[in-house]
Design a protein around this nucleic acid. Structure first.
Length: 413
RNA sequence: GCGGGUGUAGCUCAGUUGGUUAGAGCAUCUGGUUGUGGUCCAGAGGGUCGUCGGUUCGAAUCCGAUCACUCGCCCCA
């Protein structure tokens, strides 16, 4: 029994879960298409270097969460996120000539973490990448698209957009230095977690939940003060763009993305409905990423959303199609039932035809599969070249000539 | 990786201070109804009580370990 359990942190997607999952992907893909984003699928495993060179050796994702393995001397790993793979594909396929490149993707990601609600070891993301545009208009477009998709999923009012800027590379580096300089004398006052952060990723200390850390941070220099004029103007343009689109947001100066390659715009759509996993969709600008992985210096901006988290919040769950139940009575009617079933399916109707059973059993089955209507083929009906069409909701039953069946059933569509 | 909670039928849950063959509702199956589903009635199947070990005359119940789920931390979608 234990060996027939799914691997920890993995889940089967069945029935309603699958319908929710699928609805998130299809709606997102459809809307992304309106903005010119075309779907791409990249491999779910890559050379490990694709991630270590972009996400950052010291990040938790690379240092402890990757599913890495070796095969024939190649160092490979299951992708922990989507951006690096799409950027690799951009370079591999020589798309520098076709910028801006707009990609939408959906698929599984893998991180070796302790599972929780809304957090799994194999999880799924939708995401978009807009590569080759350095204008803040691109940031705005990608944010408007995200907001549009969240609205379509019925999450309006349930999520808040938090926004921040990390500034350009120079501003970010300057701020990082100032922060480290300020905090280092207080190293021993920091929480244990933050002592580590001070060396690995000092900006994350801004995000700490520890009370002592928060008091120190309140006194620390602000990111805003380290922004150069260009970075400041960039951020202002992004904010003006959002306002022009009627998208509300809050600036959160402590918002820091975990991955190293972000600059300028950083954002998260958050909810309070999922416990500790409040982030439902997040992203930002990553101008240095493609160069870091060995490609030509190319700007980019994008985001990823957790499908499981979005599916948990999905407002309207799509139902399963209600089929037509075809019910033959007696061996003579079996052949006719097969033929009618085939015809109706090719005409686009969902049809359920039981493999065996007397009429009562088949009627019961019609009920359990939530059939909308039953097409009953009995001796009496067939003699007249007709079928009994029974509305299973109202119980009303009429005789319909076989030739008129397809058109008559249209009233149940 | 660290800390808290929970594991009894497919699902949701009872199960007394440790005491015979471990229960209910829902679901499933059969029959009442051989040409009519839902409702109703009668009946049936389904459990190594997460797993392993310990205490005891006796363990679903007490103890330990382990696994899984879950909540929080870390981190993140």
């Amino acid at each position: 029994m234990a060996s027939l359990q799914p691997v920890r942190g993995t889940h089967d997607l069945l029935f309603e879960d699958m319908r929710r999952h699928h609805a998130v992907i299809e709606r997102a893909k459809g809307i992304a298409g309106l903005y010119g984003f075309e779907e791409v699928i990249t491999p779910i495993f890559e050379f490990t270097e694709v991630f270590t060179r972009t996400i950052g050796e010291t990040s938790d994702i690379v240092s402890k969460e990757m599913y890495a393995f070796e095969r024939s001397g190649d160092q490979l790993c299951l992708r922990p996120e989507g951006t690096a793979g799409v950027c690799r594909a951009f370079v591999s396929n020589g798309l520098q000539q076709q910028v801006p490149f707009k990609a939408f993707y959906a698929g599984p990601m893998f991180r070796y973490e302790r599972p929780q609600k809304g957090r799994q070891r194999q999880f799924h993301q939708i995401g978009v990448e807009l590569i080759g545009a350095d204008t803040p208009k691109a940031d705005v477009e990608v944010l408007v698209l995200a907001s549009h998709i969240l609205d379509a999923l019925g999450l309006k009012g349930q999520v808040t957009l938090e926004l921040n800027t990390l500034g350009d590379t120079a501003s970010r580096a300057a701020y990082r230095d100032r922060l480290v300089e300020f905090l280092t004398p207080y190293r021993n006052d920091l929480s244990d977690d933050s002592k580590v952060r001070l060396d690995k990723n000092p900006l994350r200390i801004l995000d700490s939940k520890d009370e002592g850390d928060r008091r120190l941070i309140a006194e620390a220099p602000k990111m805003e003060e380290s922004l150069n004029a260009e970075s400041r103007a960039f951020f202002e343009t992004v904010q003006a763009g959002l306002t022009a689109h009627g998208i509300s947001y809050v600036v959160n100066p402590k918002l820091v993305r975990g991955l190293d390659y972000y600059c300028h715009t950083a954002f998260e759509f958050v909810t309070t409905a999922l416990g500790a996993q409040g982030t439902v969709l997040a992203g930002g600008r990553y101008d240095g990423l493609i160069e870091a992985m060995g490609g030509p210096s190319t700007p980019g901006v994008g985001w990823a959303g957790g499908i499981e988290r979005l599916a948990l919040l999905l407002a309207d769950v799509p139902g399963k199609a209600r089929p037509i139940a075809v019910i033959p009575m007696g061996d003579a009617a079996e052949g006719e039932a097969d033929a009618i079933t085939g015809r109706l399916r090719r005409a686009g109707y969902a049809v359920d035809l039981a493999y065996s059973g007397n009429m009562k059993k088949r009627m019961k089955r019609a009920n359990t599969v939530n059939a909308r209507v039953a097409v009953i083929l009995g001796e009496d009906e067939l003699k007249q070249g007709a079928a009994a069409v029974r509305d299973l909701d109202s119980g009303e039953q009429v005789l319909v000539p076989l030739a008129a069946l397809e058109t008559d059933l249209a009233r149940f569509r």
